[in-house]
């Protein structure tokens, strides 16, 4: 995880943070009026971007997604939920690039995200769904403990709202962008010093497995607890109120666990 802090030393990475954030915000803003959950989320084709930005620009893409989402909130939905949105969108880009490297879905020799093999395409779909789930878990947990929106409704809607565009729109986007980014030497692994690129070790691989486990425990466990506590998935979930202690604990363990697992990688 040290690269997410050490990258700030590199001017090119700082510029990539700003450009990633600007692009993400610019695509988010026009859809602010297409509300899905009042004050919380809207129809977001821009969700195609964080996974792509994460895989191409690594930590710069993750910070860019977080800042871009915050700027998007400035244009009409800035609220307490924006703090959870910041971390959630960071995870939306961070989890995919970490799992891409460490989960063993792609071989060490074929690590660059060109999506030229079926193995890479499957890996892309898996990390997109897990990134979307991590984002949904953190935001869902945050707004549940604040008593704002029921976890089951919010987490299920965000997971779908993030993973569908990131797979359907994100994949062609990455296929088109990768060769150019590679040619311009802008892949994050080409920019930051080799010493700062985290090595793939047994510890980092364990960290990736732990991260997936916490995402699944937090999201699936949280949803089971929420449904058991009277909540329902998607829009039916608005019939209940937020603030269930058990849901807060399970989703909280998952959310914090994802962050801790990041330090193992």
């Amino acid at each position: 995880m040290k690269e997410i802090f050490s990258m700030w030393k590199d001017t090119k990475m700082v510029v990539l943070v700003a450009l990633s954030a600007g692009i993400y915000a610019a695509v988010l803003i026009p859809f602010k009026g297409f509300v899905l959950i009042p004050g919380i989320t809207e129809f977001r084709p821009a969700s195609a971007l964080p996974v792509v930005l994460g895989l191409l620009f690594g930590p710069a893409g993750a910070w860019g997604a977080a800042i871009g989402n915050l700027i998007g909130d400035f244009f009409g939905s800035l609220g307490i939920g924006s703090t959870f949105g910041f971390v959630g969108n960071f995870l939306f880009a961070y989890v995919p690039y970490k799992l891409w490297r460490n989960l063993g879905l792609v071989s060490k020799e074929d690590m660059e995200p060109n999506l030229k093999s079926s193995k890479q395409i499957i890996a892309y779909i898996v990390v997109s769904i897990l990134g979307s789930a991590a984002c949904a878990l953190f935001i869902g947990w945050g707004l549940e403990i604040l008593g704002m929106v029921p976890f089951a409704a919010l987490a299920s809607i965000i997971t779908l709202n993030n993973s569908i565009p990131s797979i359907i729109l994100g994949m062609p986007l990455l296929i088109v962008l990768y060769p150019r980014i590679k040619k311009w030497d802008l892949l994050w692994t080409d920019i930051i010093p080799e010493a700062d690129v985290p090595a793939i070790t047994a510890k980092s691989r364990t960290g990736a497995v732990v991260m997936v486990a916490f995402i699944l425990v937090g999201l699936v466990g949280g949803l089971i607890a929420a449904v058991g506590g009277g909540q329902a998935l998607l829009y039916s979930g608005f019939a209940s109120t937020a603030g269930d202690a058990l849901v807060g604990i399970i989703a909280g363990i998952g959310s914090i666990g994802v962050l801790v697992a990041g330090f193992m990688q």
Partner: peptide, 11 residues
């Protein structure tokens, strides 16, 4: 803070 301010200007 610089990245944040630059991103806002980029939009």
């Amino acid at each position: 803070a610089f990245a944040f301010a630059t991103a806002i200007r980029m939009v």
